[in-house]
Design a protein around this nucleic acid. Structure first.
Lengths: 201, 201
DNA sequence: TTGCGATGTATCGAGCCGATACATCGGGAC
DNA sequence: GTCCCGATGTATCGGCTCGATACATCGCAA
């Protein structure tokens, strides 16, 4: 997963580790927490070994000083890396639909075809719907077995699921209707779509 | 974290691994995904070694058959385990406020004192507020650098943060006002509190 | 009776995190 | 001037966690 993220970012521009981490933190939304160096550097090493990226000592002409000793290492994507990135972008496994995987794929949606985007959005929706059904099950069947706090946590989780499903529906509709990257404006005049009441017995 | 969850569940009743996992999946809300056996069994081994739980081969009198060979192993909490659980409940580190940690602590709120509950709720709120500010920063400063999809992901994340902060505010108010485990009803007549418009410039 | 899905225990490789160490850079305090 | 500190930067280690896998039993239906 991180593999895909790194290749995607390096496709935009060569970068060194520190920079890469910052980009990772800002671009990959809330779904994917900031990556740690203990993950980043070993992964970079692995990608280099696989031939998907190459490192180039930054000669002080191009990039600021950091004179001598351990200079900063700039990574850039290789031709094989670009191919691999393209493959990863369209490939979908179960991990594509968990929080982290979906976040990364979504971030690179503008570099994918509509078919893939729809497949991923629908897979994600399916995943969240399953989670939602599980929660409804609990809330309906086992409500008396749970204390008030646990119950409230489940209820909050259920609301979040319902909200995300609605969001995904919107994106899917948008995607099908052609106008791909155009999202509706959220302004004071249209703060929220009319919300159907929760169906709790 | 899982340590706290296991001890908490075993405090309710002795259980074997499979059962423990199911309880874990249902009780710990959406914040904490279902635990894997590759995590559960090593953790149980560790807890047993620490003396916080003990295992008792289920003799077929009490629990259904599963005749012979590798019988199911029932774990129960020890006196030291109970003490340790009480300690863990009130102790708060940084990991208390991430999704998993908060989920587990919240699940056991009914076994904590109000002071601890407030401390945890406020810590969690602070954490989410930080995330929210980060997202606002990005959306305000770097919006032009990001494509439409990435932007939409950030916007969705921001909304989720704002929503969770409001939820926490509600819980905190509730907690302060005395009536501890009483949550307001969500029915068709009160589907949602009036929502202030998003403050986007 | 055969076979299959749920129940049940357990391990292994690999990914990932937090803590830690170490080094340089730019700038403000004194 | 120099001294210290926070941001920048690379890197490793121990330990937790996951997904895949293996193996065994139980209840039940074809």
């Amino acid at each position: 997963m991180l593999e895909l993220a790194i290749l995607g970012l390096l496709q935009e521009a060569p970068m060194h580790g520190y920079e890469l981490r910052k980009e990772l933190a800002t671009k990959l939304g809330t779904l994917r927490a900031a990556i740690s160096y203990g993950t980043l550097y070993p992964t970079l090493k692995r990608l280099k070994l696989a031939g998907w990226i190459s490192e180039a000592e930054a000669n002080s002409d191009i990039i600021p000083p950091m004179t001598s000793k351990r200079g900063r290492v700039v990574y850039k994507i290789t031709a094989e890396g670009k191919e691999h990135f393209a493959d990863l972008l369209t490939q979908t496994g179960p991990e594509t639909y968990d929080d982290a995987g979906f976040g990364v794929h979504f971030t690179f949606f503008s570099r994918t075809d509509r078919a893939t985007r729809l497949r991923i959005l629908e897979g994600r929706r399916r995943r969240i719907e399953e989670r939602r059904e599980g929660l409804r099950e609990i809330l309906a069947r086992a409500a008396d077995r749970l204390d008030a706090y646990t119950l409230e946590l489940q209820r909050h989780g259920l609301e979040a699921c319902e909200r995300e499903v609605r969001w995904l529906e919107e994106l899917i509709t948008n995607e099908r209707s052609g106008r791909t990257p155009a999202f509706r404006q959220r302004t004071e005049s249209t703060p929220e779509p009319p919300r159907p009441p929760l169906d709790r017995p």
